[in-house]
Design a binder for these strands. Structure first.
Lengths: 339, 339
DNA sequence: TTGTATGCGTTATCAG
DNA sequence: CTGATAACGCATACAA
């Protein structure tokens, strides 16, 4: 009927309203908002005043449809309840915000099938780019994303030679470094409490790091006593009890993350074992819990905040047409009282 | 030029492609996807097969523009780094996901001005509804949201009589309950470490709860030794040291949350004070840290997960046209070793 | 039950 | 530098 239906109520002005108020065309209004440099000083001012006066703000969906960009970036993480992901995600979000992007969140509960589903959901929801944890997933997922031209950054892991963009660290190398230190101290009977290694590449690489250190020290990696469980303090405690009730009690229990290690610490206390005199315990991540625990935990410090921040930066640069390189972040062994 | 430009490349099929493939109109395709009950069994099947075969997935922006709904719900929280918010947000997200909605996240760093900005950002980004923390904010913000018809749920607080929808708990009542217990134990010299009460309604209400308990017990609320600081273990430790170095050393230090309380606990250890013999300490929230601390912390348990889940449910119901009531969740005093 | 035609609010192309 | 106007992809009255 009538294109300029700017009659009646005030609710939610459109470009047409602004154009009418400023006495220009909608095209000019759009230009003022998107490429202010290309319009004359005078009209720019007039238009911006109208924008201000009407309280205009561009309709997100329409803009997205016309420009084919949403300025939303998705992140799919196992769970925010793990402090390390919450921390990284917070930094990621702050950096996105700084660059005018908004964060879209989904969680996978450490399940690859759910992750795939979420990847599809978030891309269908218009995410311009995606942050993913780890590298283990079906190749067709990467195809899917590439076909849709959705850039991805892998975090919490490092895959320099995979052709995939990543901002993370080398889990295997980090854990090997810690295991080297443990072995150097004279420990030979090693136990390990890990997340499921079948579906969690970070967990698998960490265990592999321990085995590598054992090999280097001419210890039989087959003697590593490994228990796989789900991340939680309770499970860590139970796994620890199980390890210590076996025939060959380990002298040191290396845990896949700090949460499991805290559980192990509790387990030791229940069994009346002194740490580190009777049994040494190590963690991974260096969360706050690690420093406040009854015995400050020997662990691997991971720069989660920096990782999240850099991941955002790298993604934004990619969206801006650049080709930033992957970055491998250094980790640091934190030797405290439990070793 | 040509409406059915389904020529050439495969990338990203549209309704038109599906319609052509299935030999129906675009309207029918749309109906198959949105109201399957209204189309014939036969064509439905044929269309869905075409959808499957082409790997079609509706364009988010176009759908949002046409239907005026994004199916995205926003949440603005102080920070995900605080475990309580991460936990609540995780539950919120899971429940949204279950209802086909996606979570949009922004953070305010406990600053009201930033929060206002984020509220505008997320509504401009098309959030269908919003989760906010606490109730203290400029009235015009509520107007703004109401005018835009964006439902809001307030959490971490309870405002039954404000006309605003909330899913939370009564901070004042909760802290008063804890303070009642403290006073009942015979403590009269009370210290308090809190977040800034000027811009944080939860913090203010908690302190008010302590004062109310003192009044009830005929103690002068003016004798409450209050220190306001930012949430962190370090700040808790520093504030504790400051309290204990004053003229009138408190017999009990009630902290605004568990993080500050852990700091106080560390402070006590540094000063060589025994807990609770020399000084009692209490927290608020009941995060994991509270149970694993050197001395298990007496604190107030808040059902964060349930709060997040219910908040999502209430928001979804509102979007579905219902008018769910606010809910006030019960909290529970957790008496442990520090009192 | 299905098809036709139009609107949704912007951006972008192409003249002027 | 500015103004018409055609996409953008889908939903939905309205008609058949």
């Amino acid at each position: 009927m009538d294109k300029t239906h700017s009659s009646g109520g005030r609710p939610v002005p459109t470009v047409a309203d602004v154009a009418a108020a400023a006495g220009v065309s909608t095209a000019t209004v759009s230009r003022c908002l998107n490429s202010p440099t290309v319009v004359s000083e005078k009209t720019l001012k007039r238009v911006m005043e109208a924008v201000e006066r009407l309280g205009y703000s561009p309709n997100f969906s329409a803009r997205a449809l016309a420009s084919n960009r949403t300025n939303m970036v998705g992140a799919i993480i196992p769970t925010m309840e793990n402090a390390i992901f919450a921390r990284g995600l917070q930094a990621f979000q702050e950096e996105l915000q700084r660059h005018g992007r908004t964060l879209l969140v989904a969680s996978s509960s450490y399940r690859l099938d759910l992750e795939e589903q979420q990847i599809k959901t978030l891309s269908a929801r218009g995410a311009d780019a995606l942050l993913l944890i780890g590298y283990q997933r079906d190749a067709r997922i990467y195809d899917y994303l590439e076909k849709r031209d959705i850039p991805v950054v892998l975090t919490w892991a490092s895959r320099p030679d995979s052709g995939l963009l990543s901002v993370g660290f080398d889990n295997r190398k980090a854990m090997k470094q810690l295991a080297d230190m443990v072995i150097q101290e004279g420990y030979t009977a090693i136990g390990c409490i890990s997340a499921e290694t079948g579906t969690n590449d970070r967990a698998r690489d960490r265990v592999e790091g321990i085995r590598a250190a054992m090999r280097d020290a001419h210890l039989d990696p087959g003697t590593l006593q490994l228990i796989e469980t789900t991340y939680s303090i309770e499970n860590g405690e139970a796994a620890f009890a199980q390890l210590m009730s076996g025939a060959a009690q380990p002298e040191v229990v290396m845990c896949g993350n700090d949460v499991l290690a805290i559980g192990a610490l509790k387990g030791a206390a229940s069994l009346g074992l002194r740490v580190p005199e009777d049994v040494a315990i190590t963690g991974f991540d260096d969360i706050e819990l690690a420093q406040v625990a009854p015995y400050p935990l020997t662990t691997v410090h991971v720069p989660h905040r920096r990782m999240g921040q850099l991941a955002a930066r790298v993604l934004v640069e990619t969206l801006d047409g650049l080709e930033p390189p992957s970055v491998e972040l250094p980790v640091e062994i934190c030797r405290r009282q439990t070793l």
